[in-house]
Design a protein around this nucleic acid. Structure first.
Lengths: 134, 134
DNA sequence: TCGACTTAGGTGATGTGTCAACTATTTCTG
DNA sequence: CAGAAATAGTTGACACATCACCTAAGTCGA
């Protein structure tokens, strides 16, 4: 189910908005903060991605003009990732349709009880995975 | 949950047996038939993978000696994929530990009811995805 | 203040997955 | 039977993920 769902959501986002789920995830992070700017490590923490994964992803997104890297003046090691106008436009255009798709291919098929059970499962399994140190 | 689970299972399989989940899936297909041999398209159907994905995967596995390609005498277009001794050894070594990991990181945390609910959810969602033709 | 350690991030190799285009071989049909 | 269409599989380009390793910059104790 999970593989088919991801594939379906990925295809929808890609077709309708030329964004991947990874692009979308990063853009959501950035739009979630008022400055529309985060350091690489903050994105990594938020998404639970490796820093190298974030770095590669940002490189690709920068190439397409969705975000831009800006050196941090306080700390010469860090780099800020800023949302560009193009990136903001992209996610604003993509989000409503994406949310709608999540509903129609997934949420709408679940009863409230089923959703609650799934949430309980996920919480339990994730807690255990996190506890054992991955 | 799903991402963390896949990551965890992948890491276990990779670390303990030098196999990826994809390798494992292909090997399972092959060991499931008495001849230990399938055509590319049969693997694609069984795993619901694109034929191109299968082809790439087989190329990589062939390079490592897990499987081998054999031309089909009846149909010049087809190719058989055969399990090698090395491949059989690999999956026999990997399977018990992998199954055990699936239990300890996932199944053991679910009650019978939760498992049944999850199954119902998956069936419903998958049926719908399949029905809409993608 | 000097050197060890840590932290932030980037890079290249390799494996993985998708798409579009391609070759070669049936197979079907007029 | 000739040519169109379907089928089997491969390939190359690119996006994505992980790993191991690297650099540069800050931090901190002797």
């Amino acid at each position: 189910m999970q593989e088919k769902l991801s594939a379906r959501l990925h295809r929808q986002l890609q077709t309708d908005s030329q964004l991947s789920l990874s692009d979308f995830a990063v853009l959501v992070c950035l739009t979630d903060v008022p400055e529309e700017s985060l350091r690489v490590s903050q994105i990594a923490t938020a998404l639970e991605w490796e820093k190298s994964r974030v770095s590669h992803q940002i490189t690709r997104m920068e190439r397409r003009g969705l975000v831009e890297r800006v050196d941090c003046p306080n700390d010469g090691r860090s780099a800020f990732v800023n949302l560009t106008a193009c990136g903001r436009k992209a996610i604003e255009a993509a989000a409503p349709q994406h949310v709608e798709t999540v509903r129609t291919v997934f949420l709408d098929h679940l009863t409230r009880e089923q959703l609650e059970t799934l949430e309980a499962i996920a919480t339990k399994v994730i807690d255990h995975l996190d506890a054992e140190g991955s």
